[in-house]
């Protein structure tokens, strides 16, 4: 597992487009390709390392298997027929799980968190498709709004792009419920990449248990052998609260009664501390559950975020 954060605090590499520039590109597919190319400039590795000729496991011969794949040495030792399976032949499936609740639509400058999550998800889907792996998509708010099972069929990635482009922020958040449903439907080992602002679902917050217990759901997925990565996306305003005026704050999600009239500058320091503590709690919870945690501000170039994610994964596999 690896963790990290990418945001405006780190200068973007040359050639990496920031989210606002990406938004000017015509289609999501083009954005995805741009992101991937940016992330992989000088770095040509797969999402699933160890493919091509690397042996992974034996399987008993079944009718239809190629004769040349039979491992004759194993036949001699066990007196049964086994065929070799290689990495590129494993059925590694990738689930892209995106929070599409109303809170993900917050945007003041730049792009919304949902847009940003879309950029990252499309790039990952594009990458998976390029490698011939199966990619699926789950959009959720308080329930599973769209679900596209993983597949390697032609047109799968375009369908992912279509769903991502059509996604609109709405509804309340219940990530735990959506992941619970997902866990029930996945029967094979998969890479599950969750993207959310994680607001109103805290690992240690008293009373959150009743609303879904997202950390618990993530732990359960990890326990079933799935590889889980969590992208924690926040708008810069949700990190620093850079307002000066007297502000009347209202909740974004439907039915949220919370309001606050305050001189924002009075709250800025306390808010920054609360926001940092909030991220620290999530980071600690993920570390404990062996889940990869990655924090990203929506003003950071997505390619940079993707590159750091892939690099960490490759490093983790090598070690």
């Amino acid at each position: 597992m690896s963790e990290g954060a990418t945001g405006s605090g780190e200068p973007p590499r040359p050639g990496l487009l920031d989210p606002v520039d990406l938004a000017r590109l015509a289609s999501l597919e083009l954005r995805a390709r741009t992101i991937v190319e940016g992330a992989f400039s000088g770095m040509h590795r797969n999402l699933h390392p160890g493919t091509s000729v690397e042996f992974t496991e034996h399987r008993e011969y079944a009718p239809g298997d190629e004769i040349r794949r039979i491992d004759w040495k194993a036949v001699g030792r066990a007196d049964r027929y086994f065929v070799k399976r290689f990495e590129d032949e494993t059925e590694m499936r990738t689930f892209l799980v995106l929070d599409a609740s109303a809170s993900m639509g917050y945007r003041r400058l730049g792009v919304s968190k949902l847009d940003y999550a879309g950029y990252l998800a499309s790039a990952l889907a594009y990458l998976v498709g390029q490698q011939g792996d199966a990619a699926g998509l789950l959009l959720f708010d308080e329930k599973a709004r769209s679900f596209l099972p993983p597949s390697t069929r032609p047109g799968q990635i375009r369908e992912v792009f279509r769903l991502l482009e059509s996604a609109q922020p709405a509804g309340r958040t219940d990530a735990a419920l959506a992941l619970g449903r997902l866990g029930e439907q996945i029967d094979k080992r998969s890479l599950i990449i969750v993207m959310s602002d994680l607001l109103d679902s805290e690992p240690d917050e008293p009373g959150v248990e009743a609303r879904g217990a997202l950390p618990e759901r993530l732990r359960q997925l990890r326990a079933r052998g799935h590889d889980v990565a969590l992208f924690h996306l926040l708008d810069p305003d949700e990190v620093e609260l850079p307002f000066d005026d007297l502000i009347f704050f209202e909740g974004m999600e439907p039915g949220d009664p919370r309001t606050l009239l305050a001189q924002a500058s009075d709250l800025a320091q306390a808010f920054k501390r609360e926001s940092a503590a909030f991220r620290d709690r999530w980071r600690a919870a993920c570390l404990e559950a062996s889940i990869e945690y990655r924090f990203a501000r929506t003003d950071a170039p997505p390619a940079e975020v993707l590159r750091a994610f892939l690099a960490d994964r490759q490093r983790a596999v090598r070690h």
Binding site: S103, M104, Y106, K113, D197, L199, D200, E202, L234, D235, D237, E238, L241, F243, D245, L246, I247, F248, F249, E250, G251, M252, E253, D256, R258, L260, L267, A270, F271, R273, E274, S275, F278
Partner: peptide
């Protein structure tokens, strides 16, 4: 100035 804000939970705590 009215602002619809997502991180109300953090705001209320602050």
């Amino acid at each position: 100035l009215p602002v619809r804000f997502a991180a109300m939970q953090l705001l209320m705590r602050a």
